[in-house]
Each structure stands twice: as structure tokens, then as C-alpha cells.
Computed example of a mutant assay.
Amino acid sequence: MGFTGQCHCGYVTLEIEAQNLPPLYACHCLDCQRWSGSAFGLHLLCGASDVRVTGETATYAKEHRGQTSVQYACGVCHTRLFNETTAAPGMRVVRAGVLEGAEQFVPVAHIWTRRKQPWLALPEGVAQWEESPTPEAFANALG
């Protein structure tokens, strides 16, 4: 099963080759709100080797709570494409909105809900944490 995507200008493309649909989660933290310019960020957690990138990316590294997150964006239009974090070695966190067919993805978890916008109602029965869950709890929710 393959998924493709691109930045806004089309200079950088992504190809994800995975056996199953990667799990999607919504992050409501202030960083995701600011970076997305929206109420939350939608992320697909993928194996790093499953994500192929074509085109030149710019990077930005951020230290937060003892972890390092490296953001990858198009070097031309600056669309944020994915990040790698020391909190999830060997993984790439792909921004779901850059993928073709993103409407087929439904979040299986919501994190940092204590920062969610008050007008947003989250669905019952979907895993939710007020902050970051433990790696074990998050892995269980993502299946």
C-alpha cells in the first residue's frame, strides 16, 4: 500500500510505502497550533525507512522537555512535511495534510487535550490524553 504527497509548491514529494494505513493522531499542543496555524496538527506515525523524500528540505531543530525534534520543510515554499524526534527513534511523523487522499484518515488518538480549543468536541471512544501519553499507552492506542 502506498501513499504520496507533496508540499504546497510541489518541489518536495513524499512517498510512504507501508503494509497498513499508518495510524493518525491529533496533537492539540501549543506548538502544533502555532506551526499549523490551526486548532491542532494531524500526524501519521511512520517508520523512517517507509518514507521516501524527493527534493531539498530545510530543517529546524527544537529542544523541548529533554527531547530534540527536527522539523523538515520544503526548501522553497516552507510547507512543514514531517519531523523526527528523539522521543520516537526510527520514526517519521508525517503531516497528514500533505498526503493525497488525507480525507480517508481518521484520528485514533488525541494528545495534549488540555490545550485543545474549547469549541472542539472530541469523539467518545477515541483515546485521549491531557498531555503526552507514556510510549506504551500511545503504542497501544495506535495499534
Rank of each mutant, 00 (worst) to 15 (best):
G55F: 12
L45E: 07
Y25L: 11
A58P: 00
V76P: 00
I111R: 06
A58N: 04
H28N: 14
T86S: 15
V51I: 01
P22D: 11
R80H: 14
R95Y: 11
R52H: 14
Y25C: 02
N20A: 14
V98L: 00
Y25V: 04
V76D: 05
T85G: 07
Q104L: 08
H28T: 00
G90H: 01
L14S: 01
L42E: 07
C32G: 01
A96D: 00
R95K: 14
T54R: 15
P23N: 04
E56N: 12
E63R: 11
G101A: 10
L81D: 03
P89W: 09
T68S: 12
V70H: 07
R52W: 00
R80C: 06
L45C: 05
A109F: 11
F105W: 13
V106M: 09
R52K: 15
C27M: 02
L21Q: 13
Y72D: 03
R65I: 01
P23E: 11
G47I: 01
A61K: 11
E56P: 04
N20W: 03
S49K: 14
C77A: 06
D31E: 14
G90Q: 06
G55W: 11
H78I: 01
F105M: 06
E17V: 12
G41S: 13
R52C: 03
V51D: 03
A18H: 05
C74V: 08
V106Y: 02
V53H: 09
L30R: 15
E56S: 07
G75R: 13
D50A: 15
A73F: 09
L99M: 05
Q71I: 04
L21Y: 02
V93S: 08
T68K: 14
V51C: 02
E103C: 06
T85R: 03
Y25I: 09
C27K: 04
R34P: 00
V106W: 03
A26D: 05
Y25M: 06
E103W: 08
W35A: 13
R34A: 13
Y25P: 02
F82L: 05
Q71M: 12
Q33A: 13
E17S: 14
H28K: 06
F82V: 00
G55Q: 02
V108F: 10
G37L: 06
E84P: 04
E15D: 12
V98E: 06
C29P: 12
D50Q: 15
G47H: 14
A88V: 12
A48G: 08
C27A: 02
E63Y: 03
G97R: 09
V106F: 04
H43W: 15
E56K: 13
H110C: 04
